[in-house]
Computed example of a mutant assay.
Amino acid sequence: MTTPRRSGRPDHGSGRWGGVGIFPGPHGDRGAAAVELAIVLPVLLMIIFGIIDFGRAYNQRLILTEAAREGARAEAVGANASQQVTNVVNNRFVPTVSVTPCPTGAAPTPPSATVNLTATFKPITPLGKTLSWNVMTARGVMTCVG
């Protein structure tokens, strides 16, 4: 009986791919996962923090815009604009309210009531605290009724 021919390559260790070269084997890559995590984790956290703070800021912006629109509508029909703004905001944040009431007397153009709101956004993540988009404004304008 003849012995099978070997390919002439030396055996460099156990494991599926051998023990040297670009395929180091079962024990040659210890700690690689920790290094990869250390590289990827900060980027991943920045993305997650950005999504959280951007979502909260966008929500506050929508509420502020709605409150300005409702305040202008209330002022246009003769109701209390500041009270309507407070009802819409519902203690989520405290805006600064500036109201231009409907003018009395005849005007050449249709008169309108204007409500300007300013609020400060408070981020909750470390990434949001480094950005400078914390002051938000909104303006609501409605044509006065009677």
Rank of each mutant, 00 (worst) to 15 (best):
R69M: 12
T100R: 10
P24K: 09
A38Y: 00
L41G: 00
G13H: 04
R5W: 02
A33T: 12
A34K: 00
A67K: 05
A74G: 10
A106T: 15
R9Y: 06
H12P: 04
P101C: 04
N90P: 04
L44M: 13
F93L: 09
V94H: 02
R56L: 15
R5M: 08
V85L: 07
V99A: 05
G13V: 07
G19I: 11
Q83Y: 00
L44W: 08
I22V: 13
S7Y: 07
G19F: 07
S82K: 12
G18A: 08
A38T: 13
A34M: 08
T86E: 12
A74Q: 12
G21N: 12
G15I: 11
G50M: 08
A68D: 00
G78L: 06
G50C: 06
G78E: 11
Y58F: 10
D53Q: 10
R73W: 07
R9T: 12
P101N: 04
V97A: 01
A67N: 03
I51P: 09
R30L: 15
P95C: 13
L62R: 05
N91K: 13
A32I: 14
G71T: 10
F54A: 11
V94D: 03
V40H: 09
V88A: 06
D29Q: 14
M46V: 03
P26K: 14
I48R: 13
P103K: 03
A67C: 06
R30W: 04
D11A: 06
F54G: 05
N59E: 10
M46L: 10
G13W: 01
V99L: 04
V43S: 08
Q60W: 06
I51E: 06
V97P: 01
Q60M: 15
I22P: 05
T86C: 02
A57F: 03
R56S: 11
S14T: 14
G19P: 12
T86M: 04
G28L: 11
L64P: 00
P10G: 00
T65Q: 08
R73T: 08
R61D: 01
A33M: 11
L62I: 03
E70V: 11
Q60G: 02
R92G: 05
Q83C: 02
R16V: 09
M46N: 06
A68E: 01
A76G: 11
P42I: 06
L41Q: 07
C102Y: 00
Q60N: 07
P42N: 04
G28S: 15
G13F: 00
A76I: 15
A79M: 11
L37N: 04
R61S: 02
F93A: 04
S82Y: 02
A79N: 15
I48F: 11
I52K: 15
A74T: 13
I39C: 06
L62E: 08
A79C: 00
Y58R: 02
R56H: 05
